[in-house]
Design a protein around this nucleic acid. Structure first.
Lengths: 340, 340
DNA sequence: TTGAAAGCGCTAACAT
DNA sequence: ATGTTAGCGCTTTCAA
């Protein structure tokens, strides 16, 4: 086990100065070909690589991006993460990642820990708890200290920075319209994420679609189920209303669980009851019938966020903040009737 | 937007030396209470935090762990990642993460890029391509350069280092035995991961169980399906053999897809056909009937790996390499018959 | 063509 | 109680 060597080692090996070695390895015109050759050869032979920490200190940049993800088990976030990772690797950036686990404290602690020179900028999506508390002081502070930031998906108007968001309103409106146009009259909205900004936006899109089609909004059909409630019990109560013929589920697990439930209750899908959900993961594709979903293009969102941040890091500065809105797509499968 | 301040700024502010400020902020007994107070107060007011890059350079450690994961969309790896993340955060370590995306080249490039002082050690699971090629030179090199490493799940005997592995052999043996003990006579093994070390181990466990029960191994029941083949077509051919009454799927997607297929074919599950699969994600739990799975305890594996690495980083050194084997658990659900 | 020196931000041993 | 110096590994003027 040989330890890594430094310029100093090489310098003493050839009885030259450290500066000479540095220049030789950077192929400077100041150094004679002969010296360059022998030094480069020696360096290669001993696997010399410059210490990146020293370079970071010198250049005052680390080529590192901090990523804070609320929950990596969530298919959408995993996809976003992939997108960020790929684009970053592509542009020569490294990722420091943290899973906030929806905790405000973890999010805050991580920011505090990492903003001290370890990284050039942040990409993050707010923890559920942070959105619930609406406490963004830690984020404002880091921005104030000059650390660039891109927020995605779970964002807030309280903070000014670059953002990439899903067109949740439009996505829900489209999905609801699709249900209506395929003949659904009584569409229930199933939300287990009403405390999230995106949950609220999707609910608004649903209401908008109903309005546009002159369907009265029935508050009994707007079902908000908390994390601590038993989902199945709650759904059974909702489904006591036999007139319901469409479900718009705001994320995938509730859709899959609902599907299994209504199948057991004897509903024919999609004829007697149609289902659409957000989050286009494996779950909706592998169940039977396959569930029609709203795709949020997670990977693309990640790529976009990474690109925005890197542009800001490498750009002139002074460009105004931007919010990019990514359109959703409806992926039709078997849980909705054909439009024709 | 105020830039971050340094010791130097504070020193000039009070006309003292940088060393005095450093000591004051570290609450050294050498500094008078008065000076300490005013310096600390000023530092707090201006959000002084030490530059961690400078500290890393000084201490020659970064408190950072590099994590290389083959695929973050895989439920097992996502869980492992969570485990690593939690344990690391707990111990004050930060994670630099990379998704190799099963590519040998990406894995190699990342190691090259990161081993230059950016991190104290690696935790990784081999990319599929790396295992297929059996080309481990990059890993051997980094270990030789003195970078500590813990491998998990997809490991190889060709490399000596700390390892955390799943007892895949035993898990498959147990699962197969469970199928046998609940009355299955003709159990097919469905593998879409035969190029992975863990796939091979599981297949051996299956064979061992058959041997123990004096059931002859029928090579027609050992089904290896490549990524580029159409899974459903391949399975239909297998299932032409109506005597098959049990499936051991080596990961979750093939199980869920098989389940939907056999349901369509009219099989009663579990009575006419029982199914068990590896990888205890959401998929097997949300389909109907729920699939009995072998849990690999991903999160615990992550925690263990992180702990092993940190112990090595902070320990005396010279402790011999260790391989920890984590037992699997069989989670009985509806796709297998009761044992009794 | 090569080297000396300064500096990135910080700590620690050693003066004063 | 405070300051000086050296050094972590590197690059970059500037001088020789």
């Amino acid at each position: 086990m040989k330890k890594r060597i430094t310029l100093k080692h090489i310098a003493s090996e050839f009885d030259v100065s450290i500066a000479t070695v540095s220049k030789a390895l950077n192929d400077s015109y100041e150094i004679s070909v002969k010296t360059k050759e022998k030094i480069q050869q020696y360096a290669k032979k001993h696997n010399y690589t410059p210490n990146s920490v020293a370079l970071s200190l010198l250049n005052k940049k680390t080529k590192t991006i901090g990523v804070i993800i609320p929950n990596i088990m969530n298919n959408f976030f995993a996809k976003v993460f992939m997108g960020i990772e790929q684009k970053a690797a592509d542009k020569g950036y490294t990722l420091i990642s943290c899973i906030s686990n929806e905790s405000h404290e973890k999010e805050l602690k991580t920011m505090e820990l990492l903003k001290n020179g370890t990284l050039d900028g942040f990409i993050l999506s707010l923890a559920e708890e942070t959105q619930a508390k609406a406490d963004y002081q830690h984020i404002k502070n880091t921005i104030n200290e000059g650390v660039p930031m891109v927020m995605f998906d779970r964002v807030t108007d309280a903070i000014e920075c670059d953002k990439v968001i899903v067109d949740d309103f439009e996505g829900a409106r489209n999905a609801t319209n699709h249900l209506i146009h395929t003949g659904c009259k009584r569409i229930a909205l199933i939300s287990v994420i009403d405390n999230l900004s995106v949950g609220k936006l999707r609910a608004k899109g649903y209401e908008q679609a109903l309005n546009e089609n002159n369907i009265e909004i029935d508050s009994k059909l707007i079902v908000k189920i908390a994390k601590n409630e038993d989902f199945e019990t709650a759904m059974k109560i909702v489904l006591a209303d036999k007139s319901i013929d469409g479900l718009l589920c705001l994320e995938e697990s509730s859709a899959v669980q609902s599907l299994e439930l209504v199948k057991r209750m004897g509903y024919k899908i999609p004829n007697e009851l149609s289902i659409i959900c957000f989050t286009n993961g494996k779950l909706p594709q592998y169940v039977s019938p396959k569930i029609t979903t709203v795709s949020q293009h997670g990977k693309y969102i990640g790529e976009t966020a990474a690109e925005m941040l890197i542009n800001r890091l490498e750009g002139e500065g002074d460009t105004p903040f931007e919010t990019k809105v990514i359109k959703t797509s409806l992926i039709e499968r078997e849980s909705t009737k054909p439009l024709h």
